[in-house]
């Protein structure tokens, strides 16, 4: 028995070493850095301590950080529910349909393509003068929109692209969840005379709850860290990403610039910790709201 325990720990060893080196140590170091001023050029242990200054600075005196926080919040709050709602609609329409695999494949095309490439293509689609989107709008009698060129519409434009790209992966999960619901329930409901919305509301939604929780929580964690689309769609170089006039600046883009363009590692670490607390808090709230009666081990 004891030799088996030893074997188990031996099998775990590579993973444990990995987590110690690439996870626990960096997380602790980042906490240390967030209370220091450090430019990565001097030894980290000689960095000068600044107490809470990095935190107070970004939360009180840094309008760009607050702007990035707000933009990211808008991105999360709009793109995640919208993408999931569209995925639920598409999966609903795919029920009992032949060639389901082919439909899935079509929706998966953006998901299996690098976001950086998708964003670069959409940047051309959004061009105000020759872009495909304005061309189609004009054909439908709608005036051209400035899209990425106007601070008022730039973030929305990126959200549209992210929603478009995100439907596929959500659809796969939601579709699998819906397939697990037995057809008999719907047949019984039809015999009982329940109409479409009632069937959706009282059969699909309750049984889909674990699936929806899963896509909401994982989708939200990913959306807080949006980076690729911003980099792809706002500027040719990283240092200038997030425009026009910071209207599309998000937390991770700003952290990247703070760390690797301005070499302000302490401040960037403080930002990372602020993001960390937000992600944890939001995830817990989501679990609570979805699971009023205790959290299921999903």
């Amino acid at each position: 028995m004891r030799s088996r325990t030893r074997a188990a720990w031996l099998f775990l060893l590579p993973a444990l070493v990995f987590y110690a080196v690439f996870l626990i140590f960096p997380v602790v170091s980042s906490l240390y850095l967030s209370f220091h001023e450090w430019n990565m050029l001097t030894p980290p242990l000689q960095a000068s301590s600044v107490g809470m200054q990095n935190y107070t600075h970004i939360l009180r005196q840094d309008p760009v950080f607050l702007k990035a926080l707000w933009n990211t919040l808008v991105f999360v709050a709009v793109s995640v529910p919208l993408s999931i709602a569209l995925a639920v609609l598409m999966a609903t329409l795919m029920s009992r349909r032949r060639f389901a695999g082919l439909w899935r494949l079509i929706f998966l095309l953006p998901t299996i393509t690098p976001a950086i490439a998708l964003g670069m293509v959409w940047r051309y689609l959004y061009r105000p003068n020759y872009g495909l989107i304005n061309t189609l709008l004009n054909a439908a009698g709608i005036a051209s929109q400035p899209w990425l060129n106007d601070p008022a519409t730039a973030l929305m434009s990126i959200i549209i692209t992210a929603v478009w790209a995100g439907i596929g992966s959500n659809l796969i999960v939601v579709d699998a969840g819906m397939r697990d619901i037995p057809e008999e329930y719907y047949e019984a409901a039809a015999i009982d005379g329940a109409h479409g919305w009632q069937r959706f509301r009282h059969i699909t939604l309750p049984l889909l709850k674990p699936t929806l929780l899963f896509v909401f929580v994982t989708g939200t964690i990913a959306a807080w860290q949006v980076f690729d689309f911003i980099v792809a769609m706002t500027a040719p170089t990283l240092g200038r990403a997030g425009g026009p006039v910071n209207s599309t600046m998000t937390l991770v883009v700003y952290m990247y610039q703070t760390a690797f363009e301005y070499l302000n590692m302490g401040r960037a670490s403080a930002m990372a910790y602020v993001l960390f607390f937000i992600v944890i808090a939001v995830s817990l709230v989501q679990l609570r709201v979805f699971w009023r009666g205790g959290v299921e081990n999903y």
Binding site: V21, F22, P26, I221, A259, A272, V279
Partner: peptide, 15 residues
């Protein structure tokens, strides 16, 4: 899986 990856970025880069 809940940790934002930027928490690791700077220390891992330095390492």
């Amino acid at each position: 899986m809940m940790l934002p990856s930027f928490l690791f970025t700077i220390p891992v880069y330095y390492m």
